[in-house]
Computed example of a mutant assay.
Amino acid sequence: MINNLFSAVSAAAAQEHFDELLRRPGLRIERIVSQGQASPTGFWYDQPQGEWVVLLSGSAGLRLAHEPSERVLSPGDFVEIPAHCRHRVEWTDTSAPTVWLAVHFDAV
């Protein structure tokens, strides 16, 4: 069976959509589709596992707590977020779906 990361990407969803693509011990891969969503004001992710994320389409602002400003991501940009690195999504594209591929892995 062949699957496609861009299948069933719909425009203007009210909420982000998360699809788990693969799960193995110590590893989880998911597709995230956003359109205009952002982390709630004052909210920071603080995950016990590491995360590697690549932006496949759209655009987004990603903020890591220890950095002075957000990183603006475009298609092809990727970031490794270490375990317990506080981070948040400042904004995502409002005019087209933003598709992320996120790889969550146990810290070594």
Results as ranks from 00 to 15, higher is better:
residue 49 Q to W: 09
residue 84 H to L: 12
residue 48 P to M: 09
residue 9 V to F: 06
residue 67 E to M: 08
residue 49 Q to D: 14
residue 93 D to G: 04
residue 106 D to S: 15
residue 38 A to M: 10
residue 17 H to C: 14
residue 30 E to N: 09
residue 49 Q to H: 10
residue 17 H to R: 14
residue 68 P to E: 13
residue 85 C to F: 03
residue 16 E to V: 08
residue 72 V to L: 14
residue 35 Q to N: 08
residue 89 V to H: 01
residue 34 S to Y: 01
residue 97 P to N: 07
residue 97 P to D: 09
residue 89 V to A: 02
residue 66 H to G: 15
residue 27 L to N: 13
residue 94 T to D: 08
residue 92 T to S: 12
residue 25 P to D: 13
residue 57 S to I: 08
residue 59 S to L: 04
residue 63 R to Y: 05
residue 87 H to N: 07
residue 21 L to I: 12
residue 4 N to T: 06
residue 51 E to H: 02
residue 103 V to G: 02
residue 79 V to P: 02
residue 57 S to H: 04
residue 64 L to Q: 07
residue 47 Q to A: 15
residue 106 D to G: 15
residue 22 L to H: 13
residue 81 I to T: 06
residue 15 Q to M: 13
residue 5 L to W: 00
residue 9 V to Q: 11
residue 91 W to H: 03
residue 95 S to A: 08
residue 54 V to A: 15
residue 23 R to K: 15
residue 85 C to I: 03
residue 63 R to E: 12
residue 82 P to M: 12
residue 82 P to R: 11
residue 32 I to N: 01
residue 31 R to A: 03
residue 20 E to V: 10
residue 18 F to W: 03
residue 103 V to I: 09
residue 17 H to P: 10
residue 60 A to M: 10
residue 89 V to G: 00
residue 50 G to A: 12
residue 108 V to I: 07
residue 24 R to N: 15
residue 94 T to L: 09
residue 50 G to M: 04
residue 40 P to A: 14
residue 39 S to G: 08
residue 49 Q to N: 14
residue 4 N to C: 11
residue 78 F to V: 13
residue 3 N to V: 15
residue 93 D to V: 05
residue 76 G to F: 05
residue 35 Q to H: 04
residue 78 F to I: 12
residue 29 I to Q: 05
residue 83 A to W: 01
residue 107 A to I: 09
residue 79 V to S: 12
residue 59 S to K: 03
residue 55 L to E: 01
residue 81 I to F: 04
residue 18 F to R: 11
residue 64 L to T: 02
residue 53 V to P: 00
residue 70 E to L: 14
residue 96 A to Y: 00
